[in-house]
Amino acid sequence: CHSECLGNCSQPDDPTKCVACRNFYLDGRCVETCPPPYYHFQDWRCVNFSFCQDLHHKCKNSRRQGCHQYVIHNNKCIPECPSGYTMNSSNLLCTPCLGPCPKVCHLLEGEKTIDSVTSAQELRGCTVINGSLIINIRGGNNLAAELEANLGLIEEISGYLKIRRSYALVSLSFFRKLRLIRGETLEIGNYSFYALDNQNLRQLWDWSKHNLTITQGKLFFHYNPKLCLSEIHKMEEVSGTKGRQERNDIALKTNGDQASCENELLKFSYIRTSFDKILLRWEPYWPPDFRDLLGFMLFYKEAPYQNVTEFDGQDACGSNSWTVVDIDPPLRSNDPKSQNHPGWLMRGLKPWTQYAIFVKTLVTFSDERRTYGAKSDIIYVQTDATNPSVPLDPISVSNSSSQIILKWKPPSDPNGNITHYLVFWERQAEDSELFELDYCLKGLKLPSRTWSPPFESEDSQKHNQSEYEDSAGECCSCPKTDSQILKELEESSFRKTFEDYLHNVVFVPRKT
C-alpha cells in the first residue's frame, strides 16, 4: 500500500485506493498535508475557505447554543480562536489581540433580562453583547459592586439597553466600559436606550469621564423622579442622539420631579488639616426662599486615587461607600458681607490618608415646582503625618564578641513616609551569675543571650482551647457569634421535631 494509506488498500502504491488515510483526505486521495488554498479540518480532512465560511455563517444565523462559528488559524479551520487571539470578521482569520481579548457573548432569543446578581454573573467577562440587555433589578445585597464585577467589562451592545423598574439602582456607572450601543435591534418605538419607572436612579454616568455613542435609535425617559433633566440632556449631547427624540420621548413632568437638581456650584473657602482632623468651610448658599434650606450634607471617604465619582458603590438597598454628615444651616444675616460661612470639623480620621470630599445642599421643593440647590466639586484632601507606631517583631542576635545583629519589621501604621529608623542602645553591667558559677561542674549549661522565638506554653494553649472559665478566673470563653447562636437554635429545633416524629412513629394507638 501507499505510504499515506492506513489499515489496508485495494490497489498497491495508489493513494486513492486506501481504506483510511494516515494524515489527511483531499478529493478522494490521501495526502501528507493540505496544500494551499485548503485548510486542515478536524485533523483528517482538507477543506477550502468557502466550506469553513459556510459553517461560520450557519452557526451565526441559527443562534443555536453550542454550535461553533468556525475560524481560520495556522492553516486550520477550527471552532474558535485560541487564547490571546480574536477573529477578523472580513476573512475569519485569528489575529493577536492588542491588550485583553474581546469576548463576544451571543444571547438566546436576542435579549437577556438581568433581574438578579445570579443572572448578571452569566455575563461575567463579556466585552461584546450580541443582542439586547434588559435591566430589571428590584433589590439585593452589595448590588453596585456585584454588577460592576460582572457587567463592568461590557464595551458594546449590538441591540438596545433597557432599564425598567430597577428600584435598587442609583447610577449606571457599573457599566464602566460601555462605549457603544449599535441599535441594530430596537425596542418598540425605535428606541435604543429605554429608561422607565426607576424610582431611585439619580445618575446615568459621570459624563466628564465617560463617552457613549448610540449609532441608531432614540432615547426614552419616563417616570424617573430623581433623575434630573440636565442629566438626560447631557446624554443626548454626548451620545449623538440630540435631535432624534420626539416631543413625548422625554417626559418633562415625570423626570426629576422629586430630585434636588443642583444648578449652582458650592466653593470651599477654608481648608485646614491635622493628622486626624480636617476643618472645612464653604461659601454660604440661600435659595430664593431661605426657609427652603434644610441644611447641608457632607460626604467623605478614603480615596487612594483621584478618580472618585459621587455615586460609586451606591445602591438604593443601603450600600453606600460614603460617610454622610448632616449639618444645620448657619444663622442668616441681613448683611451679605457678614454672612457666616458654614463648615464642619471632621474628626477621627487616619493620618497621612487622602480623602475625597464634597458637600451639597438639602432643600425642600418650592411652590413653583422649581428645584434649587448647590453642590461642590469633589475635592481631595490629605491629612498630615504623625509619629508612626512601633516597629514590629524586633530580633537581636550576637554573632561574635563585638557585634549584635538587630532586625525588625516595619510598623503596622507608618502614618507617613518613613525615611529612617533611630536605634538606641545602652551598655549593661555583666551578670554576677557568670562569676559565681563553678565551671568545672559536669552538665553545666552556660547562660545564653542568643534570641529564641517566643512560644506559647501548654497552660496558655489549654486556656485558649477551654470553653469555660478556669477556677483562677484568668480566662473566659469568647462570646458566641450570631451565626453560632442561630445554628444552635436550628439544631435544637431539629432535635425537638425529630423526637416528636419518633414518638408518633414508635407509639401507635392500640386498636379498641
Results as ranks from 00 to 15, higher is better:
K103W: 05
L108N: 15
L108C: 05
T113N: 04
T113G: 05
I114G: 02
I114M: 04
D115N: 12
S116P: 02
S116Y: 05
T118S: 13
T118Q: 00
S119W: 02
Q121E: 04
R124Y: 00
G125D: 03
G125M: 06
G125Q: 09
T127Q: 14
V128T: 07
G131L: 01
L133V: 11
I134K: 02
R138S: 04
N141E: 07
N141L: 05
N142D: 12
N142V: 09
L143G: 09
A144P: 06
E146F: 09
L147C: 04
E148K: 10
G152I: 01
G152S: 10
L153K: 14
I154G: 01
E156W: 07
Y160R: 08
L161T: 06
K162M: 03
S166F: 14
S166R: 01
A168G: 06
L169I: 13
L172G: 03
S173H: 09
F174W: 13
F175M: 10
F175H: 03
L180P: 02
L180C: 13
G183A: 12
T185K: 13
E187N: 08
I188E: 02
S192R: 01
A195P: 01
A195Y: 04
Q199M: 07
Q199G: 11
Q199P: 10
N200S: 13
N200D: 04
R202G: 05
R202S: 09
Q203K: 11
L204I: 08
W207A: 11
K209R: 12
N211M: 09
N211D: 07
I214V: 14
Q216S: 07
K218T: 11
L219A: 12
F220L: 08
F220R: 14
H222L: 09
H222I: 06
Y223S: 05
K226D: 03
K226R: 06
L227N: 00
L229R: 12
S230P: 14
E231R: 09
H233S: 09
H233L: 01
H233I: 06
M235V: 11
E236K: 10
E236A: 04
V238K: 15
S239Q: 08
T241L: 11
K242E: 10
Q245Y: 06
E246N: 15
E246R: 15
R247T: 11
R247G: 15
N248Y: 13
A251D: 03
T254D: 05
N255Y: 02
G256A: 13
Q258P: 01
C261Y: 01
E264P: 03
L265S: 13
L266K: 02
S269A: 08
S269D: 14
T273R: 10
T273Q: 14
T273L: 07
S274C: 12
S274A: 08
K277Y: 15
I278N: 01
L279F: 13
W282N: 01
P284F: 04
Y285T: 02
Y285S: 03
W286G: 05
P288G: 02
P288R: 14
P288M: 08
D289A: 03
D289C: 04
D289F: 00
F290L: 02
D292N: 03
D292I: 01
L293F: 03
L294G: 02
G295F: 04
F296K: 03
F296L: 02
M297C: 07
M297P: 01
L298Y: 02
L298V: 08
F299G: 04
F299R: 10
Y300I: 10
Y300R: 14
E302R: 14
E302V: 07
E302I: 14
N307G: 03
T309H: 12
E310S: 12
D312R: 10
D312V: 12
D312L: 09
G313T: 08
Q314Y: 04
D315V: 13
C317M: 08
C317W: 12
G318A: 03
S319L: 09
N320S: 08
S321L: 08
W322C: 13
W322M: 02
V324A: 10
P329A: 08
S333I: 07
S333D: 12
S333A: 09
N334Q: 12
S338M: 13
S338C: 06
S338N: 08
Q339W: 09
Q339T: 08
Q339F: 11
N340L: 10
N340W: 12
N340F: 10
G343F: 03
G343Q: 11
W344A: 15
L345F: 14
R347D: 06
R347Y: 04
K350Y: 12
K350S: 11
K350L: 07
T353F: 07
T353P: 01
Q354E: 09
Y355R: 00
A356E: 06
V359F: 03
V359R: 00
T361A: 04
L362E: 08
L362M: 08
V363S: 03
F365P: 13
F365G: 00
R369Q: 10
R369I: 07
R369G: 03
R370L: 04
T371H: 09
T371I: 10
A374S: 02
S376D: 02
D377H: 05
I378C: 05
I379M: 15
Q382E: 11
A385H: 06
P388S: 03
S389C: 04
D393P: 04
V397T: 14
S398K: 00
S398Q: 09
S400H: 12
S402H: 10
S402N: 14
Q403P: 02
Q403M: 09
L406R: 00
K407P: 00
K409C: 10
K409V: 11
K409L: 07
